[in-house]
Each structure stands twice: as C-alpha cells, then as structure tokens.
C-alpha cells in the first residue's frame, strides 16, 4: 500500500469500498456464477422454459382439452400453420403448441419435486451412514451399491406400470422418481461426511455437548451443501428425461394429461407417415430444458468450488 496516502485520500480511491467488503461463501459463489457465460446462458434458457410453462397457458388461445373435428384428409395431423404454430396432432387434432406448453409445466414440476425428494432422502441416508459409520454404514451402502448396479430405469418402468398401469397421477411419478433418485446423492453426502467428521470444529461441538443429530444437520450438512446443490440441479434434468421416457412407453402419467413424454407417445403411432412436427416440438422442449439445466449445473459446480479464484 502507498505509505504516503492519508486515510481521507484512501477513502477517495474508487476501489476503497471493494477492498473492505467481506463476502461470505454464497456471495463469492454468486460472483463466480455471474462470470460463467455458459451458466448464465443455461439459466436464461431454463428460466425461459419455466416462464413458458407458467404463463404460456394464459397467452395461447387454445385449451389443452380442446379437440378438433375429424378430418379424413389429415388423419395424421396438420403441419404447422399460422393458426397452429406447431401443427396439430393426428386423429384428435389437438394443438401441439398448447400441449407442449402445458407439458413443459408438468414435466418441470415433476422434475423439480422429485429431485427435491431425492436430495432430502439422499442427504438423510448419506449423512447418517457417513457420520455414524460402522454396521449402519455398511448396510446402507451395500443397499446403495446393489441398487446402483441395476439399470434403474428398468426398475422404475416396472414399478410405475404395476402401480399405475399407465394411468398414474403425476404425484405418483414424483414419488417413484424421488424414491429411486437419492442413491447418488447419498453416496456423495456420505463421502463428504467421512472427511468432515474428522474436522476440529466437529470435535469442538461434540466437546460442548452438542447432540449427534444437531452436529449432522447444523454443522456437517451445511458444509456439504455445494455438491448436493450441484447433484440436485443435474438430477432435475435426469428426472425430466426419465419421466418422458416412462410416459413415452405408456407406463407413466395418464395419457390424457400432457407431459412432454406423453405427447411423444401419441406421436409414435403416426411417425411412419412422416408427420415430424408432433414429435419434434415436445422433444425440442425437453432438449432446451435439459441443456439449460446442464449448463447451469456446470456453472454451479465451478462457482461453488471454494478453491476457484474469484
């Protein structure tokens, strides 16, 4: 520092406040996130799709339950036109844009809620396994390992068919995906716990007579929040693709309710007649959402890494 400057002169300097500003972990992360171009692009994309899902239905002139008159000439649906920007579906002639907007909202809702459940269950199981160790850890992690050696999509398919027989309500799908999505997060949290529980501040808390539960959920979990946030964000994308796949095969949400997968499922029947629009737009919506989430998750990973430079 310039030794000749007085305090008044220092205060006049443009970077004076910045130097004294102290930022906590989250403010630093936010600063890093803002500089991550791909992350901003991804967030914008994601927010755009959220807005489309939320306010789209109020702007679009059609109702998602509206069906058109039968039309022998266009049984496979009409291509995009001014009246129907994304075309309409085969047989029932529902407006594809309306379906996509409503499907986007429901798919996003299922993705976010299921990932939230996964995050909570995963944090709970991983936290307990990692903190207590011993036989509890062995049993829990054996189960996690065993389940992770299965292609879980196979299991989810069978489970949703047996539970809903192709007419499940969307909360059922949330529960099913939440039930199978926590494994990765549990493993992650356990690994972080194993290293954190040896830290001095944990010993200090224990010496002060703090209970185990409080140590886990007040001290350890907040310190392992970054990887949980990243994994949960990326998990939303996984659930959206997974739910679309299950519904696409006809084992998921009731076909009358538009989710992005359900719309695709209907399109399969007419696909060999070349009507691309019915399948193209809902799939493109999935790609946009997932791409946005993946960019965002990557940005979060970099931003939340405390070793990264500001």
């Amino acid at each position: 520092m310039d030794s000749g400057a007085t305090l008044e002169e220092l205060e006049q300097r443009p970077d004076y406040d910045v130097q004294l500003e102290s930022l906590n972990q989250w403010q630093l992360a936010w600063r890093r996130f803002k500089r991550h171009r791909m992350a901003l692009l991804g967030s914008a994309l994601f927010l755009f799709m959220v807005v489309v899902g939320l306010i789209g239905p109020f702007i679009i002139p059609y109702d998602d339950t509206k069906i058109g008159l039968p039309d022998a000439k266009f049984n496979a649906g009409r291509p995009p036109s001014i009246a129907h920007l994304f075309g309409d579906t085969g047989r029932l002639h529902r407006d594809v844009l309306t379906l996509v907007v409503n499907g986007t909202r429901l798919s996003l809702l299922i993705g976010v809620l299921a990932s939230a459940i996964s995050a909570i269950v995963g944090t709970f199981v991983g936290g307990i396994a990692g903190y207590f160790g011993g036989w509890l850890d062995t049993i829990l992690m054996r189960i996690v390992d065993a389940l992770l050696s299965l292609p879980l999509l196979f299991v989810i398919l069978a489970f949703s068919q047996f539970l809903g027989e192709g007419h499940a309500s969307w909360p059922t799908m949330v529960l099913i995906f939440g039930m199978f999505g926590w494994l990765g997060i549990a493993r992650l949290v356990r690994a972080v716990m194993l290293s954190l529980r040896e830290e001095d501040y944990v010993d200090a808390a224990r010496a002060a007579g703090v209970s185990d539960v409080r140590i886990i959920f007040r001290h350890l979990v907040p310190n392992s929040l970054s990887p949980i946030i990243v994994a949960t964000t990326l998990g939303v994308a996984g659930v959206i693709i997974g739910e679309a796949f299950v519904s696409f095969l006809g084992f998921g949400v009731d076909p009358a309710t538009p989710t992005l997968g359900n719309i695709l499922s209907g399109a399969l029947e007419f696909i060999s007649q070349g009507n691309w629009w019915w399948a193209f737009f809902p799939g493109a919506a999935i790609v946009l959402i997932v791409l946005g989430i993946n960019f965002m998750g990557d940005g979060l990973r970099d931003a939340l890494d405390p070793r990264a430079k500001v």
Binding site: A244, L264, I271, A279, F280, G283, L291
Partner: peptide, 17 residues
C-alpha cells in the same frame, strides 16, 4: 453438451421421421 441433453428415444424418433 447438446448430445448429452438429448433424450435417446426422441433422437430415434427424429431419425425415423
């Protein structure tokens, strides 16, 4: 990144179309 965000089944449908 784009490839990573593609649902397998949708890509298949588009290729068929």
């Amino acid at each position: 990144y784009v490839g990573f965000s593609f649902p397998t089944f949708w890509l298949g449908l588009m290729l068929i179309v």
